[in-house]
Every structure is written in structure tokens, then in C-alpha cells.
């Protein structure tokens, strides 16, 4: 018996060294599920760092505010972990983009440095502007602005982004 165990132990130990493989594709998979607003509301400096933290088990799956409960569900499914509702206040999911009031802007470039996705263009002492289609609405440009000239506006509703409602039925809705 001891002989068997020893032999197997040696074989396993040898295999463990011989067949070692590097890399962790999990973080990439998690990153793919995150909304990429780069808003840092999870406490990590961006979506990828958060994904790495989740992959290594250092972070909970319910910290992403823009992802909300739906995002937490997806992460729970991917990782086989128990779903946890998003802790913070439930924000209604309306896509917003930043808008710089060009009259007030002094051209300090502080917001440009804060923007995680380079969605603000402008140079020193020049008026800045937000490239709306790229803006993720992360709000990171708001605090650094010395003159509070940045506001968040809801994306206008058009037939292209208008959605049909869930049908109203006599039956109870299946969650």
C-alpha cells in the first residue's frame, strides 16, 4: 500500500514539475463581461485591474456599479460563485455622456488627464470638448474640474435606441 502511494506520489510530483503551464485566461474572460466604463467605482483603477482582482479571488463579484445585478449574475455564472446583489444603491441604467460647457471652460486640461478613455480633446488654455460616442459616462472628469463646467446629460432618445416594453400580460412575469 505504502509502495503504491509512494510510486504515485513520485509520478505526480514529477508530472507537476514537468507539465507546468503558465497563464491565467480567466481575467480576460472576466474583463470581457465588464462594461468598460473604467469608472473605478469598484475601488480598482479600471475594469482590467478589477477583472484581475476577481480572477485571483481578491475581490467580490458585486462591486461593479455600471454592471449592476445583471453583470454580477454573469460573473457568478462564469465563476461558478454564488450570486450577490450589487451592494450599492441601485442606479437606473440610463446612458449618460459628459458635456463641457464651452463658455465656462478655462482650458486647464485636468479633465483630459482624468479621462480613462481619452474621450476629451483640447490643449492648454484651449477650450476642451467631449467626443460623445466615446465617452463612457464614468464621471471621473467631474471632480478635477476647477470651474465645474462639466455636466452629465442623458443620451437623447431616438427610434434607434428606443426599446419595446416587456409585454404586459395577465400572467405573472417570470423572473
Amino acid at each position: 500500500m505504502i509502495g503504491i502511494t509512494l510510486a504515485l506520489g513520485i509520478a505526480l510530483g514529477y508530472a507537476a514539475i514537468h507539465f507546468k503551464v503558465e497563464g491565467n485566461p480567466l481575467a480576460a474572460q472576466i474583463d470581457a463581461l465588464l462594461p468598460q466604463t473604467q469608472c473605478a467605482q469598484c475601488g480598482y483603477p479600471g475594469c482590467k485591474p478589477y477583472a484581475e482582482a476577481v480572477a485571483s479571488g481578491a475581490a467580490e463579484i458585486n462591486l461593479c456599479t455600471p454592471g449592476g445585478d445583471e453583470g454580477a449574475h454573469k460573473l457568478a455564472e462564469l465563476l461558478g460563485r454564488e450570486f450577490k446583489p450589487h451592494g450599492g444603491p441601485v442606479v437606473e441604467k440610463v446612458k449618460v455622456v459628459a458635456l463641457i460647457d464651452e463658455q465656462t471652460c478655462i482650458g486647464c486640461t485636468l479633465c483630459i488627464q482624468a479621462c480613462p478613455v481619452d474621450a476629451i480633446v483640447g490643449a492648454a488654455k484651449q477650450m476642451h470638448t467631449v467626443i460623445a460616442p466615446i465617452c463612457t459616462g464614468c464621471e471621473l472628469c467631474l471632480p478635477p474640474c476647477p470651474v465645474d463646467c462639466i455636466s452629465l446629460i442623458a443620451e437623447p432618445r431616438t427610434p434607434q435606441n428606443w426599446r419595446w416594453k416587456y409585454p404586459v400580460t395577465g400572467l405573472k412575469v417570470v423572473a
Binding site: 474583463d31 462594461p35 473604467q38 482590467k48 480613462p116 481619452d118 466615446i134 463612457t136 435606441n161 426599446r163
Partner: peptide
């Protein structure tokens, strides 16, 4: 809507990584 969000997320990811 989800596909649009996905595309926006991919774009944001690329831009964030480029910036980093």
C-alpha cells in the same frame, strides 16, 4: 441594445488599454 453596449465596451477597453 446589448450589442451596442458590447461594442461601446470593447471600444472603451481598447482606448483604456492604449491610454494605459
Amino acid at each position: 441594445a446589448r450589442n451596442q453596449e458590447k461594442r461601446a465596451a470593447d471600444q472603451a477597453r481598447a482606448r483604456f488599454e492604449a491610454r494605459s
